[in-house]
Every structure is written in C-alpha cells, then in structure tokens.
Design a protein around this nucleic acid. Structure first.
Lengths: 131, 131
DNA sequence: ATGACTGTAATTAAAATTATTACAGTACAA
DNA sequence: TTGTACTGTAATAATTTTAATTACAGTCAT
C-alpha cells in the first residue's frame, strides 16, 4: 500500500551491511531498479546520517555506523515525511457533523498509529537481515 | 501515504454513529466525494459486518452494532487486504546477496508492523469520534 | 586531464487512485 | 403496477503518484 521506498531503503542498507563502498549502479543492478532512484534514496539516507557516501572516482556508500545500531524506525523516519494514513484533500462539507472534525481525528489517529509502528520498528535492526 | 480509504471508512462510520439510515448520496455530499466511492466503501464495510445497508426506496446504512464495539482495527481489516509496506515487483538479482532474501524479509517486517499497528488500532473505537 | 563516480533537474512512462457515467436490481408506497 | 428513491456494480476517464529515463554538472583519485 505504502510505496516501495521503505523496502528499497532496507534493501540498500542490508546490502551495505554486507558489501561496503559499492556504487549506486551496482546497488541498482542488484535490486533491479533504476540507479537514479537508488541515488535519491542514498541521498535521503545520507541526510539522516545512516550512511556516508563518497563522491568522485572510487566513490560509493558506507554505513555510517554498525548495522546493529540502525533500526527500522530510523529507516522509516528517513524515508517518509508524510503521515501514514492519507485523507482526501477535498474539504468536507463543514455543515456535516463530521466535516469539521475528520481532519483533527485523522491527525490524532496518525499520531497514535505512527507511534505504535515506530515503537515496533525500533526493535528491529538492519543487522539481522544480512545473515 | 496509504490511500484515503481508511479515512473515508472512519468518516462514514462516525457519521453513521450520529445519523443512521442515510443514503450514499447524502454521505458523499457531506464528505465531498463521489457517491460511487462511498457505495463501494459501504459495500466493504457491510461485508465485514460493520454496517447493514438496506436497498430500495428509503434505503440507507446503519451501524451493525454499537459504535463502542467498532474499533479502528476492524475498520483497517475491512478496508485493506494488501500488506502495509509494498516492495518493488521487479525481481531483484538472485546473485545479489540480498536479492533472494528481501521478499521474505519484507513479509516478516510487514507481519510485525501490522500486528503492532492493529494492536494499537484495536484500542480506538469509533464512538469517541462523534463527540 | 581523464575516467568513474555522485547529485539533481527535467521529462516520460506506468501504475494506482479517484471521479464519472450509466444502468440494472430492489423495495416502498401511492 | 407503476413511479420514485434507493443500492450495486461495471466500464471508462481523469487525475495523481510512483517509477524510469535521459542528461549533464560537480567531485575526486590517479
């Protein structure tokens, strides 16, 4: 349901936990996806300090720390910024008894849902995927 | 991120907890969305035994039970069937050390994430939204 | 300076979501 | 028993999101 960027980021990080210093082309060919998408994801992961990338010749990416320390909560946060559950952008009829409330309700629901999700994701580290 | 159906279902059910026996046209105009989408969602909710709908003249929808008993976990399950986190349908290179594993990994991650999410959603009932 | 990379913008293609049109089927009620 | 007000659903189109591609400037080791 949610787009494939979370899976992509997990794939990238797990791969880096096995082979470091590899290029985006190499990663992309392994995942069978377009290299530009990989670079964009690498850029997000880098901004979140989960990886370090070296530009130029012999460049490539490295985990910024031990895979044990990188949790799926970190990955999730680095990957997404929008709330989990979308809701229609059509403004509902304010005369409708729910119309004026649904926005705030969904905000609350999103907060609670994301908190629960992140709590669980925090208990899963990248390390366990390279076995 | 996830499509708007969850929010739609919540909106519908909350509305029904305030005004019963209303038509899909009425609901749609309140939500400011197309009536056919409402009917489709009503149909899903009905199949999940969360509501009862009456066809024909003077038809309309009713909650199947007290709003106190309808939790967001019920709504989530009625609304979605696909796993939470998608992953690319391109089969990754099986020579890639992660290629053969990412599918199973994402299955596991999805299982754990959904369980945590549903646990939280189970604690939230529709009732609290009609205040 | 050259070759092997990253970073990113711009564009296109494909897929998913939402909207619309249309109409058959159901049920009430005059 | 016919009209009216609904639901159910198929088919199609419009819109939005996601993924892919092309292109090229910038970086850096050699």
């Amino acid at each position: 349901m949610i787009n494939g960027r979370f899976a992509l980021a997990i794939h990238i990080l797990s791969l880096l936990s096995m082979e470091e210093g590899v290029s985006s082309e190499y990663i992309a060919s392994n995942i069978n996806i377009n290299p530009v998408l990989v670079r964009k994801e690498l850029s997000r992961l880098s901004k979140a300090n989960l990886i370090i990338t070296k530009e130029g010749k012999n460049g490539g990416s490295y985990l910024a720390c031990s895979p044990k320390k990188i949790t799926l909560a970190d990955v999730y946060k680095a990957t997404y910024e929008k709330p989990l559950f979308n809701h229609s952008k059509n403004t509902p009829n304010p005369q409708c008894p729910m119309g004026s409330k649904i926005g705030l309700i969904m905000e609350d629901v999103n907060k609670m849902a994301e908190a629960a999700l992140l709590k669980k994701l925090k208990s899963i580290s990248i390390e366990q995927f390279n076995k």
